[in-house]
Design a protein around this nucleic acid. Sequence first.
DNA 1: TTGACAAATAGACAATCATCTATATAATAT
DNA 2: ATATTATATAGATGATTGTCTATTTGTCAA
Lengths: 99, 99
Amino acid sequence: MAQFDPVLFAKALADETRQKIMKLCCCKWLSVSAIVEQLSVTQPTVSHHLSILREAGLVEVREDGKQTFYKLNQKRITVCCGQLQANFTSENGLVETVS
Amino acid sequence: MAQFDPVLFAKALADETRQKIMKLCCCKWLSVSAIVEQLSVTQPTVSHHLSILREAGLVEVREDGKQTFYKLNQKRITVCCGQLQANFTSENGLVETVS
DNA sequence: TTGACAAATAGACAATCATCTATATAATAT
DNA sequence: ATATTATATAGATGATTGTCTATTTGTCAA
């Protein structure tokens, strides 16, 4: 699992389209085309955003035949939000990490 | 208080220099020049980043004579991190907000 | 009131980024 | 084998962004 980089994490979240994608595949596996259908951007654009989310470890990937399914990695989001916040608390950085 | 915009929040965090500034003025009031001294960017650059952090409600501002002091708004960070996470949980958006 | 200092603003420039079209890759169906 | 479908990749382009220098604004001291 990609280790936590607070700037990378924030950058992954710093786009409207990516946040929409994240909401869509929250709690369910969605194929790329299913995501495309619900947004107003092209398939390559969605693939591009998914690769950024993948890079940041924010989505899980499952391939099945021709299709590729993505699902939000909620646990990771929780951990990253916690770490982020901890970074800006008291003596920053020196906080226990959660497995 | 600027209401919560998850994309704006993430964008404010999505820069190395800004995160450094945030860590510096975590728990203490710092003047702009005090911040400049601890970074390797110019004063106008620091002022620029501070204005973005201010816009997002992430820092508090206090003027005193010639100087302007900034301090990280930790409570706001905590609330925003919580909201952000809630946005990507189960039936997103439909979660109680914290005052 | 003049000079010095602190911070903000303006404007320029290069780098990054979001998006598109076109194409490649890979899997399935005919 | 060939066509079709799903996704990824390549390359181009316009918009956004981070940084700089130069300047302005505002405050205090001499």
